[in-house]
Each structure stands twice: as C-alpha cells, then as structure tokens.
Nucleic acid binder design. Structure first.
Lengths: 236, 236
DNA sequence: CCTACCGATCGGTAGG
DNA sequence: CCTACCGATCGGTAGG
C-alpha cells in the first residue's frame, strides 16, 4: 500500500526498485547465506548447485546473482563469517585471566561448544576451506592461522611455566588438540545422546592431561564449564 | 610377436581383443584406480571429472567405462580398498601381545604411519566417505565401524585393567584419539619437516597420557616405534 | 526479484 | 580401447 503513495510507477526502471531492495536486501542476503550454508553442508560445496539454494528459498536461480556475483563468493562469505565468529569466541575466552593450562582447557571446550552451536557453518568451513580459489583464500587462511595460533601460543606459555611437558612440539600438540576437537564435525548430531557440554568437558580434559607435566598433574584441577566458556556468553 | 602366431586377424571382433585385455586389464584397472585416487585427492570427488582421470592416463574418457561402470564405482573401489588395508594393518598390530595401554599406543602410531604412507587414499576415504550413495555405503561404513571398534575395545580393556581412567566414555575417548590422528590428512605433506614417525610417536604418547589412570602413569613406559608398528611390516 | 537464454561440461551410451 | 554422440545440468548473463 505504501508503495503506491511512495512513487509513481515508471515504465522502465534503470535499476530494480532501489528503496525496497536496499532495506530488504540485507535480510534477503542473510537468508541466502543461511540457505547456502545448509545446502553446502548437506551436499558439499561442489555437489551443491545454485538451483538447490534457490529452491530452498523458493526463488529463481538467476535471482541469486542480484545479491552475489558468484557461487564462489557465496562460499567465501560463509567461510569468512564463521571464522570471524570463531576468533571472537576465542578472544572472549582469553580475556579471563588464568594459568595457561586452564586457558587451554577453556579454549578447547569453548571451541567445541562453538562448533556444536554453529555446526553447519563450521562443518562447511572445515570441509570446504580448500575449495575456495587462491585469491579469496588468503584472508580466510590467515584467519585460520590466527585461530590456530591462539592454541600454539597458549601451549608455549604452558611450557614456559613448566605446566606442559617440554618434550612435545607445541605446533604438533596444537594440531593434535585441534584435530580431536575439529573431528567432532564429522560425527556430532544435534539432539543426539552426546551433549556438547559433555564432549567439550571430556575432550578438553583428555587433551590437557595428555600435555600436562608431572608437576602440573599434581597441582592443576580442571575448571568448571560455566566459567568463561558458557555458551550463553557467546550469543549472537 | 606371439600374438601373430596366436590367432589370425579377424575383421570385426564381437568383443575387443579378449586375451590381451584379460591379462592387461587388471593392470589397467589398477592404473585407473591410482589415477582416480590422485584426481579425487587433488580436486575432491565431486569436482573431479572422468575427463580429468582419462587425461591423467592419456586415454579417452569413454574408455574408462570399459573397466568401470560408473564414477561412483570408481570411488567405491578406492574406499573399499584402503579401508581393507587399514583393517589389516590394525590386525597385524594387535597380534603382538601387550598390555592395553601399549596396544593403544601402537594402534595410534600405526594408524598414523599408515595414513602417511597411503596419504592420498586415506584422505579420499576420510573426506569423501559420505559422497558414496546409500547402497554401496553399507559395506564401507561397516568396515569403518570395525576399524573404530578396535580402538573402543582396547580402551575398554584398559579401563577393565585399571590402566585407563574409568570416568571417560570409551566411545568418546576413541573419537578424540581418532580425530586427532585422522586430522593429520589435512596438514601432512610428504617431504615436509614433520616425519611420520615423529607424528606417530608424539600423537600416540599424548593420547595415551591423556587417558592413563594415575596408577598407569607411574608404571607404564611408552614402547619404541620399531616394535610391532614398523612401517616395514606393512609393505604392500 | 523475473524470463529467457547461453556455452561448456557433466556422466554415460551405442557400437565397434 | 576408440569415435561419435546424447540429454541433463552446470554457473552465469542480458535485460528488464
């Protein structure tokens, strides 16, 4: 109704209804990204077609190109968005002061809670990271490196403090810890018998026990999940 | 030369040169599977085309259908072959008697050595397992289950012997251990600075330390890589 | 957001 | 193993 008052109909618009689009466009963009995430997760990036995504939304395939220039760009935005969220999650955890072993425990548990909450996005990230071509890959891989570095540095600090065995390679240890946590995307199911909190707690404890020095094993006690890692602090 | 003596040339063969094919066919099949593994690994199953595989071999795409009925079957054989090899590897390791903690250590180290030796095959297996449609998936997933069960059972035995903490869930522990080891396929590079032996030894040690009970931490000493896990015992 | 369309490529078949 | 070919679908464009 308002649109009748807003302006007279013009025969040929040079651009499609700009005012209506500019406002709704962002919502539609978000909806398209959500649909793309879903389809990429279900079928894999390569097997997913733009037609699948359009069907998910009840629009025409060609309409997607009004919002995104290419399928690759769609993937890129999904990846860039979830890794940014992940980094923010880690930073929030590291803001709370604690000894390196406790920080590491929280990073692992927080990583897993985040993964389970954003399962589709994270699965697409971990599974399709390499499908994105060279140019756009740089920023995403740099962010990924930043993410992993938080684990490596925390492990190094643990070694400096004598809390983590000095005979392990910090990078290798981070890859082990992250691998065990990341792998969760391959088997975790929402509503299944394994609760994210249980997985996070057990995985973090196993990893920390695997790295702790003898001295640390005597004095260190595992923290509780609710401090600093609670999913409610990671609300959208 | 022998083929001139073997039979006269016939104008129109009802089937393509049967004798020559039956012998060479198995070699060609193996070559095609090797090429498919390479291409699936490089581009991913969905992005890989039969044309890519044919190009790798210098033959025509249509010729592939003389040996394999479909692209899916190609994938299926790659997957079935590597998981069978993996199970054989685990069985070989478990033949050598030892306490459950030592067996677990060897399973992990042996798993990683195997993964690094058959990197392309294993990467395709771990990355594309789900790309294979329902019918053919059953046997492969059953084998996968068998594989994982060796880890779960060994952990349960460790718990029964008081060597592994009783407060961990054996399945969850196996998923953690296997995740850390499997993840290697995403970052390991042949000829890189990380040697398979070092990765295997460190990962196995970290995982076992992460699960060992206090009692076990006092008495258990990690085995050497050469006993029972040596890659030379896993020759093709 | 739509209709209409395109060139390229896909897995696969016929027939030898 | 090859030539010749096919229907379907792909990502993407023109133009509104």
């Amino acid at each position: 109704m308002t649109k009748v008052l807003a302006r007279e109909p013009s025969r040929k618009l040079p651009e499609p209804a700009p005012v209506r689009h500019r406002l709704r466009g962002h919502e539609r963009r978000a909806e398209i990204l959500a649909a793309a995430t879903k389809v990429f997760h279900r079928k894999g990036y390569e097997a997913a077609s733009l037609q699948d995504i359009a069907d998910e939304l009840g629009i025409r395939k060609a309409s997607l190109f009004y919002y995104f220039p290419s399928k690759e760009e769609l993937l890129h935005e999904v990846l860039a968005s979830i890794i940014a969220r992940g980094i923010a999650n880690l930073r929030r955890i590291m803001e709370v002061p604690a000894d390196p072993l406790t920080v590491l425990w929280r990073l692992i548990a927080g990583h897993i809670l985040h993964l389970c909450e954003y399962l589709e996005e994270t699965a697409v990230f971990l599974h399709e990271r390499k499908s994105i071509p060279a140019e756009k890959r740089h920023t995403v891989l740099a962010d990924d490196h930043t993410y992993q570095n938080h684990f490596v540095e925390t492990i190094r600090e643990g070694q400096a403090a004598g809390l983590i065995r000095s005979d392990v390679d910090a990078k290798l240890a981070a890859l082990s810890v992250l691998g065990s946590a990341n792998w969760t995307y391959t088997w975790f199911r929402r509503g299944g018998s394994m609760k994210p909190e249980v997985i996070g707690e057990q995985f973090a404890t196993m990893s920390v026990n695997g790295l702790a020095s003898e001295k640390a094993l005597e004095i260190w006690r595992k923290p509780s999940l609710s401090e600093a890692v609670s999913p409610s602090t990671a609300r959208r």
